[in-house]
Design a binder for these strands. Structure first.
Lengths: 234, 234
DNA sequence: TAGTGGTCTAGACCACCCC
DNA sequence: GGGTGGTCTAGACCACTAA
């Protein structure tokens, strides 16, 4: 008897292809047989083989080109997938208590570095919000955010006292594209006070720039205390 | 005239569905029509509609359940995808010169914390390799790695003088699963010397534990100087 | 220019799971 | 129980690109 959850169909083919790669039947750089041949071997149709190979290519194991065929990648271009963290949920998932506090909200002309970063017109107005997120009363994240008023006019009416700008933006402008980056930085003395650490201490910085089509919507810096980790499997 | 690269087929359907979500035709929490209805509306087959919706669900926009149908997610579970960096390529892609230098290589009993982390037997032996990666002669990354000898016996014959353990492992044990995590840390005085920064300075730490089926293969800590960034779009 | 993957059609059976 | 998505079949035309 085999495993009761033994896959069949395109899943079985994916598994078999991976097995053959592990066993060296198809080693890095080598070409696999064409879809038609594989379909015959696995006693199925080309459609099913196609789905299996397409997904393996998407996952970074194979390279597929018309006419050239399907090849095993020499260096698998594996990729990790991170769920974009939703701060409140992230904290409550750990069983901790979440609390939000707005620090400040001002409306101002976009500073030069921001206009430049977001390709804003010279005269752009932005809403600058600073806020703290606590887990069980402990400082967890300091949020420093700029919202482009022209892209999200509804923001003018928002105080962000009760709801954090992240959650509000997800509800208001849900379908955006973004660029995110992670880095390590030193906290400034101001941020240090809010995170309750010493100035100059390391912080994990998460930055995100969000666009709605071609218009910049918001730029945010999220500072986390040393010890914060982003983790994923792949 | 429309855009010359106007998508057709399942891509067109994906785009149209996203457009309708943006326009509020299908707002968060709402159910979409069934695949059969959509196929009729778009004058295509259910297969094509299925692929469009399946991909949108994979990308985190929709939730699909048998019998329940397809719903627009209230909070899109969008996910970012990071290419797993290959240090040499990453550096050379910037036009910089890459240089590798092994710092040390020892064979030892696995320390307790490592055995625990990797679920190793009491008596496990590991190879401990430390190495530096330079970009244009500047310190770029300090690598602190443990390789489980039992999982990769070939490593016993490797000096890692000419080739870094990362590259060697990718060639030798290409099909692994891994857990990675990012964090900010303080460099110890020893790491500080190699990175040519001051002890206690912030560093960006990338950790990865790698498994081949159920056996731990390697655990590595990669330290980067302040200023290093991991970036992606989604 | 010919071979390969990319995609679509039209139809079918089935597993899951909400009602 | 029945409606919905998950998947497969068998076949076709087409786009791309390596040879």
């Amino acid at each position: 008897m085999t495993n009761p959850t033994e896959p069949t169909g395109y899943r079985a083919i994916k598994a078999e292809v991976l097995t053959r790669m592990r066993n060296g039947v198809w080693s890095p750089g080598m070409s696999l047989p064409g879809e038609v041949d594989l379909a015959e071997e696995f006693a199925t149709t080309r459609t099913t083989v196609n789905r299996a190979l397409r997904e393996l290519a998407e996952e970074g194991y194979l390279e597929r080109k018309r006419k050239a065929g399907t090849k095993v990648l020499k260096m698998p271009r594996r990729q990790a997938r991170f769920a974009i963290p939703q701060i409140q949920q992230e904290i409550e998932d750990t069983g901790a208590d979440y609390r939000y506090a707005r620090v400040s909200r001002t409306e101002e002309d976009a500073p030069g570095w921001l206009s430049s970063k977001l390709s804003l017109p010279q005269t752009a107005r932005v809403i600058h919000v600073r806020a703290m997120h606590y887990a069980n009363g402990q400082p967890h994240q300091f949020e420093d955010r700029w919202i482009v008023t022209a892209s999200v006019p509804e923001a003018a009416a928002e105080t962000f006292v009760d709801q954090g700008p992240s959650a509000w933006l997800v509800d208001t402008v849900p379908l955006t594209t973004a660029e995110i980056s992670f880095s390590a930085t030193r906290v400034t003395s101001e941020v240090a006070e809010f995170l309750e650490v010493a100035p100059g201490d390391p912080a994990f910085l998460f930055e995100r720039t969000t666009w709605l089509d071609a218009d910049a919507v918001t730029y945010v810096r999220l500072y986390h205390r040393e010890g914060y980790r982003m983790t994923t499997r792949y």
